[in-house]
C-alpha cells in the first residue's frame, strides 16, 4: 500500500497550478482532499509522477450568494458544506447529501470540487449538481470556461474537463424559496457508496408542481439526469399515479452493472424505490 514515487508541488495560486499541470501533461495530477486519489495511488491504480497540491491555493474555499446564484469554491470540504448556514437556508439538499458521504474523518478532507471532478460514478455530489442544474467553472491555459453538470460526465472517470484544466468553483442557481428536496441513498453501511441513490428538487405552487428535477447516483457509468422523470411531475398535483410514472422513467434510464452491491435488476429496482421515496419526501417538504 505504498504509492509510486512522485514529485510534490504546492502552488500558491490557480494560475501557478495550471502552469504546472500544463508543464507535466499526463504525468501531473492535482490533489485536493486526497480521499479518492490517495487510495487509488496506494493501489497503484493512479501513478502520477507530479502531484500538484491545491491545499495552499487561496480563494478556492468559500461559499457565497452572488445575486440568485450560489457559488461554492472547489476546495470547500464536505464538512464545510454541512456547517454552512448559508446553504442550510438556501440549498439544504447539499447538507443532506454531504451527510451521506463516507464518515466524519473523510468529510473533513474530501472537497466538493474533488467529488465532482473525480468522475467516479459512486460519488454522490454529481447527480445532485445535475439535479440543481449547477455549472462548473474550469480554468486552463486558455482561460476560463463553464460546463454544466448535465453535460460534464462522459464515462466512468472521463469528464469534459481537459487534463490541463482545474475546476475552480461550482455555480448553483438558488432553488426557489419553499422548494422541496431530498436525497435518498441506499447503502450497505456507513462509508459505503450507493447501491442506488436519487436526488429530487421540486417546487409546488397552489398544489401544482411548477418544476421538478430528478437525477440518479451509481446506477450507470455516469450520474444520470432523468429529464423525463422531472417533466412527468410538472403541471400535476404529484399524486401516486404521477409518481409511478416518474419512477418508471427513472428505472428505464438506470443502467447499473452487476457488482458486489447486487445484480442489475436489484439495483435498477432500488433506483426506482429511491426515486419514489425522494419525491414523496421532497413533496412533504415543499411549501405551496
Amino acid at each position: 500500500m505504498i504509492p509510486g514515487a512522485f514529485e510534490y508541488h504546492r502552488p500558491g495560486s490557480v494560475d501557478e497550478a495550471v502552469t504546472l499541470l500544463t508543464q507535466h501533461g499526463d504525468e501531473g495530477r492535482v490533489v485536493a482532499g486526497g480521499h479518492s486519489l490517495i487510495p487509488m495511488m496506494k493501489l497503484r491504480l493512479a501513478v502520477p509522477t507530479h502531484l500538484i497540491d491545491l491545499g495552499s491555493v487561496a480563494d478556492l474555499k468559500d461559499i457565497k450568494a452572488v445575486g440568485p446564484v450560489i457559488e461554492i469554491g472547489a476546495m470547500t470540504t464536505q464538512h464545510d458544506l454541512i456547517a454552512s448556514d448559508l446553504l442550510a437556508g438556501a440549498c439544504p439538499i447539499l447538507r443532506e447529501v454531504a451527510l451521506t458521504i463516507a464518515d466524519p474523518q473523510v468529510r473533513y478532507c474530501g472537497t466538493v470540487g474533488g467529488n465532482v471532478a473525480n468522475g467516479d460514478p459512486g460519488n454522490d455530489m454529481p447527480a445532485v449538481m445535475q439535479c440543481l442544474d449547477a455549472s462548473f467553472l474550469l480554468r486552463g491555459p486558455k482561460g476560463d470556461r463553464q460546463v454544466t453538470a448535465r453535460a460534464f460526465y462522459e464515462a466512468a472517470y472521463f469528464t469534459a474537463r481537459a487534463d490541463d484544466e482545474i475546476l475552480t468553483s461550482i455555480s448553483i442557481p438558488a432553488p426557489a424559496t419553499g422548494h422541496g428536496y431530498a436525497y435518498e441513498k441506499l447503502k450497505r453501511k456507513v462509508g459505503d457508496y450507493a447501491i442506488a441513490a436519487a436526488a429530487v428538487v421540486l417546487t409546488m405552487e397552489g398544489g401544482t408542481c411548477k418544476n421538478a428535477a430528478v437525477a440518479l447516483t451509481n446506477v450507470g457509468d455516469t450520474p444520470i439526469y432523468v429529464e423525463a422523470a422531472g417533466t412527468s411531475l410538472v403541471g400535476t398535483p404529484v399524486d401516486d399515479g404521477v409518481i409511478a410514472k416518474a419512477v418508471a422513467a427513472a428505472k428505464a434510464a438506470a443502467q447499473p452493472a452487476a457488482d458486489m452491491r447486487g445484480p442489475k435488476e436489484y439495483r435498477a429496482h432500488a433506483a426506482g424505490v429511491m426515486v419514489d421515496r425522494a419525491i414523496k419526501r421532497a413533496l412533504a417538504r415543499a411549501k405551496g
Binding site: 500500500m1 510534490y8 486526497g34 480521499h35 490517495i38 487510495p39 502531484l51 466524519p104 474523518q105 473523510v106 473533513y108 478532507c109
Partner: peptide, 8 residues
C-alpha cells in the same frame, strides 16, 4: 480528525 494513512 483525519485518517493519517490517507494524507502525505
Amino acid at each position: 480528525s483525519v485518517k493519517s494513512c490517507t494524507v502525505f
